[in-house]
Design a protein around this nucleic acid. Structure first.
Length: 760
DNA sequence: CTAGGGTTAG
């Protein structure tokens, strides 16, 4: 017996546990309640697999109260609520009287919403005299609410232990009541490590790291838990470097890191995405013979995934087997979405047993970030149909972004309704995504309204609205907003200047643009590209060329792209050729450059050169990028591609198209080679042939929309110039306002005119 | 036996 006792003391991992188990079987002690209860306790501590724990529990012919209690604890740790309840029933069925001291704390922690019932039952059974039980109930109210009930019990207690004070304090932190938490801390008779640590965690969760650090430094003594609290405070608030430095301090202070410490350290390191660092970390863990529990393994999985090593990540995922929890699944799902493998991500998501908000958010964000906005919104619709799950701010950020990309204002407003219905509070980044959505949906007024409503704004808020002004061609407003942000003490960054210069460019504000450009300390390549775009659009092409020649840094494709586009606007063949030759070196597979150059030749009537460029395209093997256009109608996105025949209203659309063609000719519009009715010709056989997508989308909108309503179309590329002319005519003939959003700006057509100046 | 620390999504 005594040797078993010494083995039992040394159970620090699952291998030891199975050894002890084997020893018990050898000594025929595996039907002994005492030993089984001990084994089950170890199972809880070591997060043993469910099947193994069941095996131990089921081997007992008649478990007693202690064995049941151990099993309850195991389930409670897993969060297996229904199992706890059924085990509790089984216990009562077996006639085992619940030992309040042991059973109730376990049950109560799981009960959550059912807490009042348990509270009553405990009082009825007379367990309320027990201070552990009393603390457990109070702690339950403190954690799950209403926190007022906890306070009532706390105030009515005949005597209060330190644990009661501590429960109450962490309860207040949990509900965000910093004032009350601090007040209690200040008036309580004595403090221990737990008290101090709760204060550190409380402030850290609030994001007030200075206060957290102050309490941490003032603590008379620290445990690993205290260090871990401070570490995760830094890590959770995005200060990975500070966390790692604190970890060094911890080692210097001679504190042994435990598994929890490593979890935080690994997650801080994984932000670097450095494979070498990952390998050396794993070696360190191996050298120190650190036991890897499921938390550490999940953190490692995530780290490998972020370093681009998906094979190892997946291996860990497989190895974890029954140890997998929802976080493991989520980490694996986002590992796939990060590399754009949405099929695998979706597969995992569908297989996942218990999905939570993060699972949905990961996949929705995955779709949104990989250009599948419509899918993101579909998934969000599925999510809202799931009753026991509420979207949160993170969900909204992705969905707003998706609506913005689609330019789907009605959908966006529907999402805003859901936001209000669920009383979701938005942080700065939430508001920023809302600003983005409204400005990309064409409602820069709403974007501005949201911006004005914000209590605090960051540089992204300003940048987003400035970019919104830029796409709408409001140059002066963008410049004014930049002055305003300076006035409020927020320094413009690289992105701000890109926004303002783009705005100047779209509004033709040469002088103001120059001023802004000259105010940039060390302009980046992108700023040069914007400035060259501005010079080019207003016709200062030689100035633009001079600016390129004077650049202290190597120009990139954007710079020559601006020059090429300007050459197209102002029909400068030789300059266009120069820009194009650079571009064919820099990005030979970008079809847009070939198209622009051939358009320049076409506008000069140099058809042989047009043919030559097309020949070059074929030779290099460049395929024309497929452009999509879409229209929002009744909460659905209707998407069109060149020559689309897939849409269910296709026949009607083409009928309308030819009707429009006849109408144009009757009104004297000529269909010449460079304009109006020209569609992609047979010559581009291998590619998509037919009517351009924006024309199809507009026709669809004409069919379904109410008379006189504004038509809104989004295209994911530049509106091609012949379509641009055609849309002007359509707006005139049909008396309709048509708004087309490009990949970089809004075109506002009415009465045969367009708001932009750079198309013929 | 009660109270403090952990991994995932924007």
């Amino acid at each position: 017996m005594s040797h078993l006792g010494s083995i039992a003391c040394k159970v620090t991992n699952l291998k030891h546990l199975t050894q002890l188990h084997a020893n018990l079987i050898q000594n025929s002690l595996h039907h002994h309640n005492y030993w089984v209860a001990l084994l089950l306790t170890h199972c809880t501590r070591l997060h043993a697999p469910l099947a193994y724990t069941h095996l131990i529990f089921n081997s007992l012919p008649c478990p007693d109260g202690y064995v049941f209690t151990s099993m309850l604890r195991y389930y409670s740790q897993l969060g297996a609520h229904s199992e706890v309840v059924s085990l509790f029933k089984q216990m009562q069925y077996c006639g085992i009287r619940p030992a309040g001291t042991f059973v109730y704390p376990v049950l109560i922690k799981l009960a959550g919403e059912a807490c009042i019932v348990f509270h009553a039952q405990v009082v009825k059974l007379g367990h309320f005299q027990d201070r552990y039980v009393r603390n457990a109930i109070m702690d339950m109210y403190a954690k799950y609410g209403p926190v007022k009930f906890a306070r009532k019990l706390f105030d009515e207690m005949p005597e209060r232990t330190l644990a009661d004070w501590n429960s109450m304090i962490s309860g207040y932190w949990k509900w965000g009541d910093e004032v009350e938490a601090r007040r209690l801390f200040d008036v309580m008779p004595e403090w221990n490590i737990v008290t101090w640590t709760s204060m550190v965690t409380g402030y850290a969760k609030k994001g007030d790291l200075e206060s957290a650090r102050r309490y941490f430094d003032e603590m008379p003594e620290k445990s690993v838990v205290s260090w871990n609290a401070m570490l995760s405070g830094y890590a959770q608030n995005g200060f990975a470097e500070k966390a790692l430095r604190l970890f060094d301090d911890m080692i210097t202070a001679g504190v042994q890191p435990n598994e929890t410490t490593w979890v935080t350290v690994i997650s801080s390191l994984s932000l670097h995405g450095d494979p070498c660092l990952a390998d050396s970390l794993v070696r360190t863990l191996d050298q120190k013979k650190i036991h890897l529990n499921c938390f550490v393994k999940t953190a490692l999985l995530d780290m490998y995934a972020k370093c681009g090593n998906l094979e190892t990540a997946h291996r860990i995922f497989d190895e974890l087997g029954v140890y997998r929890n929802s976080i493991t699944w989520n980490a694996m799902i986002s590992a796939y979405t990060r590399v754009g493998d949405l099929t695998s991500a979706r597969e995992l998501f569908d297989k996942m047993p218990e999905k939570n908000v993060v699972s949905w958010n990961s996949l929705i964000a995955g779709y949104a970030q990989n250009g599948q906005s419509a899918m993101a919104i579909e998934l969000f619709k599925d999510m809202t149909a799931t009753k026991d799950l509420k979207p949160d701010e993170v969900t909204m950020v992705s969905v707003f972004s998706a609506c913005g990309h689609l330019g789907a204002l009605k959908l966006g407003n529907w999402v805003v309704n859901i936001l209000n219905e669920n009383h979701i509070k938005l942080s700065i980044s939430g508001y920023n995504s809302l600003i983005f959505m409204y400005s990309r949906c064409g409602s820069v007024e709403d974007a501005n309204r949201v911006f004005q409503e914000m209590e605090t704004r960051d540089v992204v808020s300003y940048n987003t609205l400035i970019a919104g002004f830029a796409t709408h061609g409001h140059g002066m407003k963008a410049i004014e907003l930049m002055s305003k942000m300076k006035g409020e003490g927020i320094e413009p960054d690289r992105v701000t200047f890109i926004g303002v210069l783009t705005a100047c460019s779209h509004a033709g504000l040469l002088e103001e643009g120059w001023k802004v450009f000259k105010s940039i300390q060390a302009p980046a390549v992108d700023h040069y590209a914007c400035m060259i775009d501005l010079l080019g659009r207003v016709g200062e092409l030689d100035e633009a060329r001079k600016l390129i020649e004077s650049m202290p840094i190597k120009p990139h494709a954007g710079v020559y792209g601006s020059l090429l586009n300007a050459s197209r606007i102002h029909k400068r063949v030789e300059l266009g050729e120069l820009a194009a030759s650079k571009l064919f070196e820099l990005e030979p597979y970008n079809s847009g450059n070939y198209i622009l150059l051939s358009n320049i030749y076409a506008s000069a009537g140099r058809w042989e050169d047009v043919e030559r460029v097309r020949g070059k395209m074929r030779k290099v093997g460049v395929k024309k990028t497929t452009g999509w256009s879409w229209v929002e109608y009744k909460g659905e996105i209707h998407k069109f591609i060149v020559g689309d025949r897939m849409h269910k209203r296709s026949d009607d659309i083409y009928r309308l198209l030819s009707e429009l063609g006849r109408k144009m000719r009757r009104n004297g519009y000529m269909a010449d080679k460079s304009c109006v009715l020209r569609d992609v010709e047979e010559e581009e056989k291998e590619e998509m042939v037919g009517t351009h997508s924006e024309k199809l989308a507009i026709c669809f909108a004409l069919l379904v929309s109410e008379v006189g309503a504004v038509i809104r179309v989004v295209k994911n590329l530049r509106v091609c110039w012949d379509c641009h002319t055609a849309i002007k005519i359509i707006s005139n003939l049909e008396g309709r306002e048509i708004i087309v959003r490009d990949n970089n700006r809004f075109h506002h057509f009415s009465n045969g005119l367009c708001s932009c100046k750079d198309y013929w």
